[in-house]
Amino acid sequence: MTEPPAQPPTPPAQPPRTAWGRSEQQDFRSRVRGCLLGGAMGDALGAGIEFDSLEAIRSAHGQEGVTGYVPAYGRQAGAITDDTQMTLFTCDGLIRAHVRRDAGGWHPPTDLHAAYRRWYATQNDWGPDERKDSDGWLAREEWLYSRRAPGNACLAGLAGGRMGTMEKPKNPDSKGCGAVMRSAPFGLLIGWEPRLVFQLAGECAVHTHGHPTGHLAASAFAVIVHGLVRGASLPTAVQTALQLLANRPGHEETTAALQAALAAVRAGLPTPERLESLGEGWTAEEALGMGVYAALAGEDIRSALLLAVNHGGDSDSTGSICGNLLGTMHGDTALPPEWLPELEGRATMLELADDFALEMTHGQSLHATEGWLTRYPR
């Protein structure tokens, strides 16, 4: 096989459109909702135990570990973290990119960088009072103005005005999981080809995580989600990601992590100890491998999410990744209903998910309406 170019071409100005019937639209909307809500659910399940060892988790919550939400960040239940915050701004940035395309501008990495800068403002400002109309509606959601243990690489990468690129990435030595955990929405670009999803996720990951593992794991995650939203099985979607990784410089750690996750599923019944054999989840490839393993090994959505968070590592990120995968695969109506009412920000997520689905299915007809351009300014 030939080596890929150092920087693949930017996605085309007119990504392919899909012909949408009513049932297809309903299925897609359910999968987008499931991706956001499922990821937030896993995030919230892990939020209160993120820095605890497995021994400490069992000591505090019993031998099975947590079996539902526990207090975190001043909330009794359902608190989300920076993982969900940044995922929402990824959705916002992708919508804004498509809106701006019809005005003659098309460079999604720039729009995503601007979206992440809006998230960065939520980590430093007291509230949304100083937001401009051009910031759109999501940046004015007051509940998002709360620090939830954001990663240092994300904060440092977005602190200045310069945008990281493949040639000059931000934090070139960082391979933390902060780019992976926000990248599921790239996979929801259902009309795109997998290689372009892979490319765009990587181009936006280097805004904060320039190490090859940091951005390649984000690209692989996006492609796995993309396979699921198109109806592929999870093992098939993982194989597509492995194929796209194969000749990328520096792919070895991400490839090994995904292969280890598949091998762990074949090794026997799922246990926290088997999950921990894949790592702790602080680095990009470990978080991806652990999230994929839990999604594959769990008997059902509930057990998979609990498996994903009950370990001595980055529980919210592995839970978030697992939840993104399961929610995309099964849709929002399959998520455990008892964990939905207390989930922080649920109304915002549903609103954003429905807007994302509308943009992907009816975008061009929306771009001439004042209401849409107020929500997602050019």
Rank of each mutant, 00 (worst) to 15 (best):
M1H: 12
E3S: 15
P11G: 03
P15D: 12
P16M: 15
R17N: 11
R22F: 14
Q25C: 15
Q25I: 14
Q26T: 14
F28M: 04
S30V: 02
S30N: 10
C35G: 04
C35N: 15
L36I: 06
A40D: 03
G42Y: 09
G48N: 05
I49E: 06
D52E: 13
D52S: 06
S53K: 13
L54S: 12
A60T: 15
A60M: 04
H61R: 03
Y69V: 03
Y73R: 04
Q76R: 06
G78H: 08
A79I: 06
D82I: 13
M86P: 03
C91W: 03
G93P: 04
R96V: 14
R100E: 05
R100A: 06
R101H: 00
G105N: 04
H107C: 06
P108D: 04
P109W: 09
T110Y: 05
H113V: 02
A114N: 12
A115F: 02
Y116D: 06
R118M: 07
T122L: 08
Q123W: 10
D125T: 02
G127S: 03
P128C: 06
P128Q: 06
D129N: 14
K132S: 13
S134E: 10
S134A: 14
G136F: 02
L138E: 08
R140S: 01
R140W: 07
Y145D: 07
G151W: 01
L155F: 03
A159H: 03
A159P: 02
M163L: 01
M163Q: 11
M163E: 07
M163V: 03
E167G: 05
D173Y: 09
G176I: 10
C177K: 10
R182W: 04
P185T: 01
P185E: 13
F186K: 10
G191W: 00
R195T: 11
V197P: 08
L200W: 14
A205I: 12
H207S: 02
T208Y: 10
T208I: 01
T213L: 08
S219C: 10
F221Y: 14
H226R: 00
G227C: 13
V229M: 04
A232K: 14
S233T: 15
L234K: 11
T236F: 04
Q243V: 15
L244R: 09
L245W: 09
A246I: 12
A246M: 15
A246G: 01
G250S: 15
E252H: 13
A256Y: 06
A257Q: 09
A257C: 11
L258S: 08
R266Q: 15
R266W: 01
P270H: 07
T271F: 00
R274D: 00
R274W: 08
S277V: 12
S277Q: 11
E285Q: 15
L288D: 07
M290S: 05
G291W: 01
V292A: 11
A297D: 08
E299T: 12
I301G: 03
V309W: 10
G319Y: 10
S320T: 15
I321P: 11
I321F: 01
G323I: 11
L325W: 01
M329H: 13
M329P: 01
T333A: 14
A334W: 07
P337L: 02
E344H: 06
G345I: 06
D354L: 12
D355Y: 02
A368M: 13
E370G: 10
G371V: 02
W372Y: 14
Y376Q: 00
Y376W: 04
